[in-house]
């Protein structure tokens, strides 16, 4: 028989966890929330004066358009990453274990290098008369250099590249758990391979896909350094604006308000995720 643990004992064991959450998660968030309703001081810092002006400013065309552009790019990147990452994760999970391990390793290796370094690699590929231009010209597909660097597609490609592994791995882990007898049962009951995939496999691996979507969508709203490096100053994303407001303009309250909006959008997405996958039903079934 295990002795019953008393209330205060529980509290003692859980205290570090609560403390950590309070100091590093709830504290900063409350601070940011409060900050977003403050007024910016004339030169440096914040004046404790309540205002809604920071939120109103987001609706100014300059910032509003940035927000919409960021959302659009994040959406595009997420769709591309899903379309590329799902099949890859799916087939990786269906490979024999040895080759699967090799592929997993290949996916992981880039993580051992700084993502910044890898992005500089793309500059070499994308710049005028760079690798891409040379290749396409050698193949006689284009006559003049494309000058892809510092364009919207370059930023999108860079983001897809940076975020693809997260999708592949999360799809992989949920496909790997699939009970393939269920697909056989679907075929046995009269489903074509495509129909069985849509009604069974896709539905059951939805949690993996949705995890991948969140892991893609949320960062792609804020990956300002990708836009900075591959987009020059032509592509401005919400993340870049926040960084700029905080570090260069020193308008902390406005940066806080932008961050709150971004967090709100992210939270809505996560709520949607839980609604769609209904996590409970997926677990524990043979």
């Amino acid at each position: 028989m295990k002795p019953k643990r008393r209330g205060w004992e529980n509290a003692v064991f859980l205290a570090p966890l609560y403390l950590f959450t309070l100091v590093f998660l709830i504290g900063p968030f409350v601070y940011m929330l409060v900050l977003s309703f403050m007024t910016r001081a004339e030169t440096w810092g914040v004046v404790q004066e309540f205002t809604l002006r920071n939120y109103a400013r987001i609706l100014e065309p300059l910032y509003y358009n940035t927000l919409i552009e960021s959302l659009k790019l994040a959406l595009l990147v997420t769709v591309l990453v899903s379309l590329l990452g799902y099949p890859f994760g799916y087939f990786m999970a269906k490979l024999p274990p040895k080759r699967r391990a090799l592929l997993l390793l290949l996916v992981m290796i880039p993580f051992w290098t700084s993502s910044l370094m890898r992005l500089y690699g793309w500059i070499i590929i994308f710049r005028a008369n760079g690798l891409l231009d040379k290749l396409l010209m050698a193949l006689h597909l284009i006559r003049k250099p494309l000058k892809m660097l510092y364009t919207y597609p370059a930023v999108a490609v860079g983001m897809v590249y940076a975020l693809l592994p997260f999708m592949m791995l999360s799809v992989y882990s949920s496909v790997e758990k699939m009970d393939w007898t269920l697909v056989e049962a679907a075929r046995d009951l009269g489903a074509s391979p495509a129909k069985a995939f849509l009604t069974v496999t896709l539905k059951l691996t939805m949690p993996g896909l949705m995890t991948g979507v969140i892991l893609t969508f949320v960062p792609s709203m804020g990956l300002f350094f990708v836009a900075d490096i591959l987009g020059g100053n032509k592509i401005v994303l919400l993340g870049s604006v926040i960084q700029e407001q905080l570090m260069k303009v020193h308008d902390w309250p406005f940066a806080a308000a932008l961050s709150v909006i971004m967090m709100a959008m992210t939270s809505i997405l996560i709520l949607l995720y839980r609604r769609i996958t209904g996590a409970k039903e997926m677990e524990g079934m043979i």
């Binding site: 009970d179 269920l182 056989e184 049962a185 046995d188 009951l189 074509s192 059951l204 039903e281």
Partner: peptide, 20 residues
């Protein structure tokens, strides 16, 4: 013939009920 075309159905050992 592919399984979906056969007028035969299976009761699987693990039941294979669709959990979703």
């Amino acid at each position: 013939e592919v399984p979906e075309k056969r007028d035969v159905n299976t009761v699987f050992q693990s039941y294979a009920l669709f959990p979703h």
